[in-house]
Nucleic acid binder design. Structure first.
Ligand SMILES: Nc1ncnc2c1ncn2[C@@H]1O[C@H](COP(=O)(O)OP(=O)(O)OP(=O)(O)O)[C@@H](O)[C@H]1O
Length: 751
DNA sequence: CCGGTGGGTTTTTTT
DNA sequence: AACCCACCGG
């Protein structure tokens, strides 16, 4: 045992926190509310295991929600211990899965330099599979199919299981998904690729089907810790269970009230039933919130108390008092954004030591960031947006990365398809068709076929030239890849294909794109695989730097880009805010229909999840919380008229301070509302929205209707009202669909 | 083969 | 409003 005086990680912990931290063997559940120190305890326990119980770091596996969280935790641990926990595996489930697969993918029939497809690439592949199967993209929404496949994988159902379970009695849509699923999975394997969900599902398959590996990793990871356990799905549970079942040294930490990912397969029962799954579990509650002022916490508790479906738990504030929560009514989203910006300015001026990096603006949908950004730009206040369109998802970045992927994995047909004609090489639809057919016949990769384009029947000379040119280029790049660093390679690539010039010729957005590409190169110049923490010292030679670079890039999450030290206000969705804390928090867009989102009205579970999201938002605030809503908001082209979110009514009046924006409470210098609003055109749809009942045909349950694409069917459910009115129709051919009445263009079907 | 145009669809949250 | 796709003329 270490010297107690050196046990830095224990200082300041309360009794329960200490109990959890010093727990040694056997299952441990820390189920506690927001800001009670769950993450801190988990960090401390890792230190304790190493320092007090003498556990070697390489025996420990810690799963966090983001890579960023993993990095920060590693840093904290290093500080607390005075040395780095070398050999410890720490990261997201996806990163751990990828790491495992890098080592053993060959056992499943994949090459170890497999590609990882992000959701965009999955979608592309699904579309191309659909095309091959002759499934119309309009009628069978590829995104819906992707979601269905993704959910299945998160339930650990592979294509065969899925088909078996849905073969009989299922609607046509589901059976179609099954069909696409199989072809999609086949295509993935054919090009040595895994999608995001495979990174969770395949490791389970790997461990279940290979006893020796299971034994090995069970022995290796004698202690397993999982943060944010309330948002794990079935595949993740199984992964943990496989490794931890035998020794039971599993610590999970979470808060059922912060479960906000059920929509992507997370199952809160994982944490609720933990004691059933691991009967000998010790349970430690944490009941003191150290983050938020008492007043904020009271509001949070009142809000979450409205949820029926939850285990009650205690959460008391250690920080007494606090300012009232400011609730501000604004005229529209611009007004709201301006109000927020000027309030931040006021607060910074009036509060000693407060910096703009202590401020965060949270919202329900990414689209809301636009108006906020405008306001911040105009006020010249620095800000950073987390999420939205990611850097690595931008077209020009993906184009460049596709070149790298194809070098790393020549079978990656999705990458090939993306870049074979970018920049233009005169290769079109027909050429591709011939080439694909020939490649399949000969059993060679597309790249090899391109190199032998002159042998392929049916391709015109221009096409042959283009293909050979492309194959040559790739050959040169591959040679260079063996000698140069990634940064150097990228520089060479950009030069070889004249990318900068091409982008500049593209018009107004070109300059931005050029800047992005240059930023990418700059970022790769100092990429160091050993620092990427993805390999063990003895494996360095087994993986190429390129593979690891691509892997890291594929797994980057929105939040990983967040720079907490920089002098900026942070703008992000409520989902991204989970686990973070800020002195000042603004929750924007608190309108009925936006937050909670109108789509959540139909199901009680969905509405409760929205409410938990609100709870997460409120509990991010340390000192002061602001909430705002707008009477009028532009959403996707047309106007919506909102009222204050019903969520707010759960907060006792005495905790709130009501305010109005300048536009709404005209001071001596502000213009009257009527003048301000004149800029907005009153559209026709707006009137429609107001008297939907008169303008749109009223449908009744059981009524027969006809839809342009889906054909005829019967109305089986009606929900929502006004512009949000929805009908569920059971179509004769495509099964059940929920449609937004104002888009659907349904007609009555008179017999 | 390419680029422009126009029509139709979409609106949630993310590893 | 923005995006994606299909179609058409050069
Ligand atoms: N015993 C303690 N004394 C003082 N401060 C503490 C104590 N325990 C935790 N804190 C502080 O409380 C804040 C919240 O801790 P932490 O993030 O670990 O909570 P959490 O339960 O993981 O929160 P959430 O569920 O909201 O993510 C942190 O700023 C942490 O430093």
């Amino acid at each position: 045992m270490g010297d107690p005086a050196s046990s830095l990680h224990l200082t300041g912990l309360n009794t329960n926190q200490l109990e959890a931290t010093s727990h040694f063997e056997g299952p441990l559940l820390v189920l506690a509310g927001a800001g009670s120190g769950k993450t801190r305890v988990l960090t401390a326990r890792v230190c304790h295991l190493i320092q007090e119980f003498g556990i070697s770091p390489e025996k420990i596996l810690t799963v966090t929600f983001t890579n960023k969280a993993a990095g920060e935790m590693r840093e904290r641990i290093t500080k607390l211990l005075g040395s780095e926990p070398i050999g410890m595996w720490m990261g997201t489930f996806h990163a751990m899965g990828a790491r495992l697969l890098r080592r053993h993918a060959d056992r499943l029939g994949w090459d170890r330099s497999f590609s990882i497809f992000d959701s965009d690439q999955s979608l592309r592949l699904i579309k191309s599979v659909q095309e091959e199967l002759g499934l119309d993209l309009k009628r069978w929404n590829p995104k819906a199919i992707r979601a269905e496949i993704s959910n299945a994988k998160n339930r650990l159902e592979d294509d065969k299981t899925f088909q078996l379970e849905t073969q009989s009695g299922s609607e046509l849509f589901i059976r179609t998904v099954g069909q696409v699923f199989s072809a999609y999975q086949e295509a993935l394997q054919a090009q040595d690729a895994f999608d995001f969900d495979d990174l969770l599902m395949k490791p389970v398959e790997l461990l279940e089907s290979h006893r020796d590996l299971l034994e090995h990793y069970r022995g290796r990871f004698s202690f397993i810790l999982v943060d944010e356990y309330q948002d794990t799905n079935r595949a993740q549970f199984r992964f943990v269970e496989l490794l931890a079942r035998a020794h039971g040294n599993l610590m999970v930490v979470g808060d059922p009230d912060q479960s906000i990912y059920a929509w992507r397969g997370a199952d809160v029962r994982n944490i609720l039933d933990f004691e059933t799954a691991f009967p000998s579990a010790r349970v430690v509650p944490l009941e003191i919130n150290y983050r938020s002022k008492e007043l904020i916490l009271s509001a949070a508790n009142a809000v979450i108390g409205e949820n029926v479906n939850r285990p009650k738990k205690i959460l008391r504030a250690s920080r007494k008092g606090g300012d009232k929560i400011t609730l501000v009514e604004t005229s529209n989203e611009k007004d709201e954004a301006q109000w927020i910006v000027s309030e931040i300015q006021d607060q910074i001026h009036s509060t000693q030591g407060l910096s703009i990096c202590d401020c965060a603006v949270l919202y329900r949908t990414n689209a809301q960031a636009r108006a906020l950004e405008d306001a911040f730009l105009r006020a010249r206040m620095p800000y950073q947006v987390v999420g939205g369109l990611r850097f690595y998802q931008r077209r020009e970045i993906q184009d460049v990365l596709a070149y790298l992927r194809l070098i790393s994995n020549p079978k990656d047909k999705t990458a090939f398809d993306r870049i074979v004609n970018y920049p233009r090489r005169g290769i079109g639809h027909t050429t591709r068709k011939h080439l694909t057919r020939w490649a399949v016949d000969q059993g060679v990769t597309m790249l090899e076929a391109a190199g032998r384009a002159d042998e392929v029947p049916g391709i015109r000379t221009a096409g042959v030239r283009g293909l050979k040119q492309f194959a040559d280029l790739m050959r040169r790049l591959s040679v260079r890849a063996t000698q140069a660093t990634i940064g150097e390679m990228l520089e060479g690539l950009v030069e070889d294909i004249n990318l900068i010039k091409h982008l500049n010729n593209e018009g107004p957005d070109g300059e931005d794109r050029v800047r992005n590409v240059i930023e990418l190169i700059a970022g790769t110049l100092d990429f160091d695989a050993t620092l990427a923490q993805t390999i063990e010292p003895d494996e360095i030679d087994t993986f190429t730097e390129l593979d690891l670079f691509l892997q890291e890039v594929a797994l980057i999450a929105d939040l990983d880009g967040l720079d907490p030290g920089s002098e900026t206000v942070t703008l992000m969705t409520l989902h991204n805010a989970k686990g973070l804390e800020f002195s000042l928090v603004f929750i924007a867009g608190l309108e009925e229909g936006l937050f909670p989102l109108s789509r959540a009205y139909d199901e009680a579970d969905a509405l409760e999840e929205e409410r938990r999201l609100f709870y997460v938002g409120i509990t991010r605030a340390e000192d002061k919380l602001f909430m705002s809503w707008a009477r009028q908001r532009r959403r996707a082209g047309d106007f919506t008229y909102g009222s204050l979110s019903s969520f707010v009514s759960a907060i006792p009046d005495k905790l709130l301070e009501y305010r109005k924006s300048n536009w709404l409470s005209p001071g001596p210098y502000s213009k009257p509302i009527a003048v301000q609003n004149r800029g907005y055109k009153i559209s026709h749809e707006q009137d429609e929205a107001f008297d939907m009942n008169q303008d749109s045909p009223g449908f009744v349950l059981g009524e027969r209707v006809i839809h342009q694409t889906f054909g005829s069917g019967a109305v089986i459910e009606i929900s929502g009202f006004g512009r949000d009115m929805k009908v569920k129709v059971k179509f004769d051919d495509v099964g059940e669909k929920k449609l937004l009445l104002r888009y659907a263009g349904l007609e009555k079907d008179w017999p």
